[in-house]
């Protein structure tokens, strides 16, 4: 039986309807509002609000992408593993479908954030929204999100959702504290800097974006081509 890619992508959405992605999305959506409220209460200064919004765009949102990617690989969990084995498609197609499903959902969220953060900043502070251009915000959120998703997806394919999320979270977490992030940025010449805007990359932003895009594409290729553990073995045995 042949399954078209769009149908395969749509089929992955069943995993994304779980409570965790939705709950996390709601929590994330509350963050900018919370920051704005703190600014309104004069707890945060304008500079802190600005940094916080960038931090939200580059750091918090991509974590959602990682969680959603792990959720899309939920059929790798022991109780659902027969389903993973039963998909009548090749491994790369399945991985691509899962990435596409997660990416589509994330694209909506990142797009909404990119469109909304500038006006929110402008509305709260009375300053022009030019400081937070939507294109830049979207590119940073998408690049970081795709990087994490591809890394997570590679781990999911090899060892299941735990391994995938753990792998992505390790990079995300390693890049979170300033002291390791600065070291990673300098060492990798901007390839690994998930917070280039809010932290200030050691390399120019456009260069960092290009390098991170290249890294993300390499990771996506890895996610598509990596051997899919037990599934590969079972399918080879069945002559698929």
């Amino acid at each position: 039986m042949k399954v078209s890619l769009p149908r395969l992508v749509a089929a992955q959405l069943v995993w994304l309807r779980r409570p965790l992605p939705a709950a996390l999305a709601v929590g994330l959506a509350a963050l900018p509002a919370g920051l704005a409220w703190l600014f309104h209460k004069q707890v945060l200064t304008a500079g802190q609000l600005f940094t916080g919004l960038l931090y939200f765009d580059e750091c918090c949102l991509p974590l959602w992408m990682l969680v959603v990617t792990s959720a899309a690989w939920a059929d790798g969990e022991p109780e659902h593993r027969p389903l993973l084995l039963a998909w009548p498609v090749r491994g790369w197609a399945l991985a691509l479908a899962k990435l596409a499903a997660a990416g589509a959902a994330y694209g909506v969220l990142a797009g909404a954030a990119a469109m909304g953060l500038g006006p929110l900043w402008s509305w709260v502070t009375g300053v022009g929204a030019d400081a937070l251009p939507a294109g830049l915000l979207l590119s940073r959120a998408m690049l970081t999100g795709v990087t994490l998703a591809a890394l997570g997806s590679t781990g999911c394919a090899v060892g299941g959702p735990w391994a995938g999320f753990g792998l992505g979270a390790a990079l995300w977490f390693l890049n979170l504290p300033d002291f390791t992030a600065v070291w990673l940025d300098r060492t990798t010449r901007g390839v690994v800097n998930l917070l280039a805007l809010s932290r200030g990359s050691a390399v120019p932003l456009d260069v960092a974006n290009q390098r991170q895009l290249a890294a993300a594409l390499v990771l996506v290729a890895c996610a598509l081509l990596v051997p899919m553990g037990a599934r590969r073995a079972v399918q080879r045995g069945a002559g698929c």
């Binding site: 945060l44 959720a71 969990e77 995300w172």
Partner: peptide
């Protein structure tokens, strides 16, 4: 259980990194 537990753990730890500043 499962990945959500890990998500909660990572979020909690991340909050202790970013939280104090804000």
């Amino acid at each position: 259980p499962g990945v959500p537990g890990l998500v909660a753990l990572v979020l909690y730890r991340a909050f202790t990194f970013g939280g104090p500043r804000l």
